[in-house]
């Protein structure tokens, strides 16, 4: 499997990563090598094999729908890069 520059640009956009133009070729080569390694899977016949969703075959636990956490907004926002009046600030999204 070989990825080219446009594949890398597309993947980087999906992953929300700003990739420097000079790094694209390197990433294309590295990711292609990793996908070559992964391609060993193609030789395995997995007809009728169930995918392993959980190592212990457990199902997701649910808890009673009761309030279990108290409000810690100030504590959590104390480590945020930019907040105002209890809100997280980001660049303007809607004009």
């Amino acid at each position: 499997m070989s990825l080219d520059a446009s594949d890398i640009e597309k993947i980087a956009h999906l992953a929300r990563l700003e990739i420097a133009p000079e790094s694209i070729e390197r990433y294309a080569a590295d990711l292609s090598n990793i996908l070559d390694l992964v391609a060993q899977m193609d030789a395995v016949d997995t007809t009728g094999v169930e995918p392993m969703a959980h190592p212990l075959h457990m199902s997701q636990r649910v808890r009673p729908d009761r309030v279990s956490e108290h409000d810690q907004r100030e504590l959590f926002q104390a480590i945020a890069p930019l907040t105002e009046g209890g809100l997280y600030l980001v660049p303007k999204v809607i004009d």
Binding site: T46, V49, E50, P51, M52
Partner: peptide
Amino acid sequence: KAQKIRHL
């Protein structure tokens, strides 16, 4: 595919 081989 990977999750199936994981089972194997």
